[in-house]
Design a protein around this nucleic acid. Structure first.
Lengths: 245, 245
DNA sequence: ACCTGAACACCGTTCAAGT
DNA sequence: ACCTGAACACCGTTCAAGT
């Protein structure tokens, strides 16, 4: 269903600041296609971020008019979801391995974590496309491993969606943090240091916990903590499940 | 720090479709204030959704010009984060109770789940404001309960952020689903039915798991599954934690 | 069938000018 | 000090007109 031969050409962002009236963009000879559009969208998202994906910028890169894109893609949401699905599909393919189900789930989770970390736009695209193809692909990947575990059938769906939601939630949050760091100066350690310092300065009566863990923020490894959470959920699956409240 | 006496007047969306040149909006007598702006922003977000929060719409509601808002608020992101923080603070206040730490965490988690479900804009606002005041407030609420449990000090931060991320991740996802339903027709059951049907129609070789859980999607209770996940994490906290991989 | 690009109806943000 | 609202530089989307 998805072509795997697509190569993304991560081009350097062009320096050219085109003034309003300039329109010497050359016409391209080969026709447009959904694939080419999505490919170029990914390149644009990677190089200029989520705000950089614009029908005008995309049209320029593809050397056509903005209207042409609408012949192949229904709207911007479609564009974003398709780009997202393309990356998710590739990522899942990478993580496939014939190890124990727990190991496979960890590998899959980490692959997604890293993919979302590398492309912050992936996270919000996933969140904005609930129950659609990207999500279904991830659910399937997780579910196949859950089937190999001792999870009883009636709880398989809950287990899979708990994992799915945890993975997406943590990864998106982590990516947002990383993006914040990039936006503010680039030095991740310096940003964390500032945040930790501001936490330590919080009101002692109102924020005792946050103050006390300020240092842990500095030494804490996002990826490691992410895996700890995965293991918590995996371990919990083996315990008898009964409803509380 | 936050005023708790603010009352949100959920006004009916006005029918008035003001044409471009019409400008008979009356001036208001009492001065603007950050509080009034945030209050009105929340009302706008609640009644018209995330896309409905616009400086022009807000100015109209406040009976001023768009520029006036910038005297009290630095930009749209500030506006959204402040509105978010206001709701989070109120929600946490509601969930406070003197029960066991596990019960308190469940209550807090459910309160947030319901708040985000009721206001889908909350989720994306939270995701977009990492490490800022709304998040810190939640972290503190969770952390105080974690301190009361047997979680050893060096793992407190990881436990709190695992919970935080799970809660936000699942709630945001659930809210996105609910919003999808509202956008498509309003009948949640009908939407889920359609999705389940499309899952059952998936390729048997490529999507064995998703096909097999299609029916579970129909009978599954989002809130209950959410709590199961919380319990998985809580239960996991009591087990010895050792790093895998 | 596919592409073009001007036009439309919006945005957030700024800023000279007012009180 | 605080407010006004036109102006600027953008958006996504549509659609008559071209090939």
């Amino acid at each position: 269903m998805e072509r795997c031969s697509i190569r993304i050409l991560l081009q350097q962002a062009r320096y050219v600041k085109i003034t309003a009236m300039q329109k010497n963009t050359p016409r391209r000879e080969d026709g447009l296609s959904r694939e080419r559009i999505i490919e170029e969208s990914i390149a644009l998202l990677d190089s200029r971020g989520e705000a950089g994906l614009t029908f005008r910028a995309l049209a320029e890169r593809l050397a056509t008019g903005t209207g042409a894109i609408y012949w192949h893609i229904s709207n911007k949401n479609d564009l974003l979801t398709s780009a997202c699905n393309e990356i998710v599909t590739r990522t899942l393919k990478t993580a496939a391995a014939d190890v124990s189900p727990e190991q496979a789930i960890r590998a899959l989770a980490l692959a997604l974590f890293d993919a979302i970390d590398a492309r912050p736009w992936l996270g919000s695209a996933l969140t904005r496309a609930p129950l659609q193809s990207p999500m279904v692909n991830i659910l399937e990947g997780l579910g196949q491993q859950i089937c190999r575990m001792r999870v009883p059938m009636p709880q398989q769906f809950a287990a899979a969606s708990a994992l799915l939601n945890y993975i997406l939630g943590v990864s998106v949050q982590n990516a947002a943090n990383a993006q914040l760091g990039r936006a503010l100066g680039g030095d991740r350690a310096a940003i964390l240091g500032q945040v930790a310092a501001s936490w330590a300065r919080l009101d002692a009566d109102q924020f005792p916990f946050t103050r006390s863990v300020a240092e842990q923020l500095l030494v804490h490894d996002d990826r490691a903590d992410f895996l700890v959470g995965i293991d918590l959920i995996l371990r919990g699956m083996f315990t008898t499940q009964k409803a509380h409240v």
